[in-house]
C-alpha cells in the first residue's frame, strides 16, 4: 500500500476528491464573501464569489446589533456549557453504576433506559408536559436541562469496563474508598477521552439547537443565537422590537436587513465552531468508532 505509484488513476481520484471538497467548502466561502459584498450590488447582481464592490456595511450592521448579539452569545455559551457539563456528569455517573456488576439495580435501570429508546411519547406530549405540568415555558432551565441518551451512556459504560479493571475498583474499596471517591478520583480522570468525544458532540448539538428556543422561549432577551438568526431571517421587526432604538433604525434607513448583513451575522454565529472543531476532530473520530461497537 505504501509505495503505490502516482498514476493517472491517482491524479483523477485526487481531482474528484478535490471537487467534492470544494462542494463542501464553497458554500461556507460564499457566506464569507457575501458578508463583505456591497448591499446594493448584492440586490442588483445577486450572490457571487467575485463581487465587483466590497463593503463593510454588513459587519457594521452586526456591530449595530452588538448588544443583542453579545447577549445571545452569552446565553448560548451559558446553556451550552451548563448542558454539556450536566449531561456528561449525569450520564457518566449512571454509566459507572451500570458498569458495576455487583450493583443490584443495574438490570432495572438498563431496562428503563432501553424502554425509552424503544417507545417515545413524541414531541407533542413532551411539549404539553413541559409547558402545562412542569411550567418550563420561557425559563432558562428548559434551554440547558441535561438529557440522558442511552447510546452515550452505553458508550461510557463500555469505556469504563474496558479501561478500568474491576481489580482496581475492588482494591480501592479494600483501602476504604467509597464509591463516590472511586468515581471522582479514579474513574472520572481516566474517562477523559470518551468524555471529550461525547462532550464535543453534545456541545455542538446544543450550540446548533433552535427547536427548544423556538418552542419555549418568548422573551427576546432569553433568545439563544440560533433563534436570533431565525428572527432575522423571518422578520427583522421581531428582532428590532427588543432593543433597537428609533434613531438606530433611522440611521439604517428603513433597516431592511440586506443579504450581506444576514451573512455577516451568520458568519459571526458560525465562526466559533469552525475555529474550535479542528482541535476536537481526533476525539470525535474516536468517539464515532467507540459508538459503533457495543460491549
Amino acid at each position: 500500500m505504501e509505495n503505490k505509484k502516482i498514476t493517472i488513476g491517482q491524479i483523477i481520484l485526487f481531482l474528484l476528491l478535490l471537487l467534492y471538497t470544494l462542494f463542501c467548502f464553497l458554500p461556507i466561502v460564499l457566506v464569507a464573501i457575501a458578508s463583505f459584498t456591497d448591499g446594493g450590488e448584492l440586490a442588483l447582481n445577486g450572490f457571487s464569489f467575485f463581487p465587483e464592490k466590497w463593503s463593510l456595511d454588513g459587519w457594521r450592521y452586526v456591530w449595530e446589533l452588538k448588544d443583542q448579539i453579545i447577549n445571545s452569545y452569552g446565553i448560548t455559551i451559558f446553556i451550552t456549557v451548563m448542558h454539556t457539563v450536566a449531561t456528561l456528569l449525569v450520564e457518566s455517573m449512571l454509566a459507572f453504576a451500570l458498569s458495576r456488576k455487583s450493583f443490584k439495580l443495574r438490570g432495572i435501570f438498563s431496562i428503563m433506559l432501553l424502554l425509552t429508546t424503544l417507545f417515545s411519547g413524541g414531541m407533542l406530549s413532551s411539549y404539553i408536559f413541559n409547558t402545562s405540568i412542569y411550567h418550563l415555558k420561557d425559563t432558562m432551565l428548559i434551554l440547558w436541562l441535561p438529557a440522558v441518551s442511552m447510546t452515550n451512556t452505553i458508550i461510557l459504560r463500555t469505556y469504563i469496563s474496558g479501561t478500568i479493571s474491576d481489580a482496581v475498583v475492588e482494591s480501592a474499596k479494600i483501602d476504604g474508598a467509597r464509591d463516590f471517591r472511586i468515581f471522582f478520583q479514579i474513574v472520572l480522570p481516566l474517562m477523559k477521552p470518551s468524555l471529550a468525544s461525547i462532550g464535543f458532540m453534545t456541545a455542538v448539538g446544543k450550540w446548533n439547537n433552535w427547536v427548544t428556543g423556538q418552542m419555549y422561549i418568548s422573551t427576546p432577551e432569553k433568545r439563544p443565537l440560533q433563534n436570533i438568526l431565525m428572527a432575522i431571517e423571518n422578520n427583522i421587526q421581531a428582532m428590532m422590537d427588543s432593543d433597537m432604538s428609533m434613531e438606530m433604525m433611522e440611521s439604517m434607513e428603513g433597516a431592511i436587513p440586506e443579504d450581506s448583513a444576514r451573512m455577516a451575522l451568520l458568519f459571526a454565529v458560525l465562526g466559533p465552531i469552525m475555529i474550535i472543531y479542528p482541535f476536537f476532530q481526533k476525539y470525535f473520530v474516536k468517539g464515532l468508532t467507540l459508538g459503533s461497537v457495543k460491549g
Binding site: M93, G122, S125, S126, V148
Partner: peptide, 27 residues
C-alpha cells in the same frame, strides 16, 4: 452497601422518568 451508586444514578433516573417515561401518558 451500594447506596452511593444509587445516589449517583438518581439524577439520570429522575430525568428519564420525568422527561421520557411520564410523557408516554401524553399519547
Amino acid at each position: 452497601r451500594d447506596r452511593e451508586l444509587i445516589i449517583m444514578s438518581l439524577p439520570a433516573v429522575i430525568l428519564v422518568v420525568m422527561f421520557k417515561i411520564l410523557p408516554w401518558s401524553g399519547l
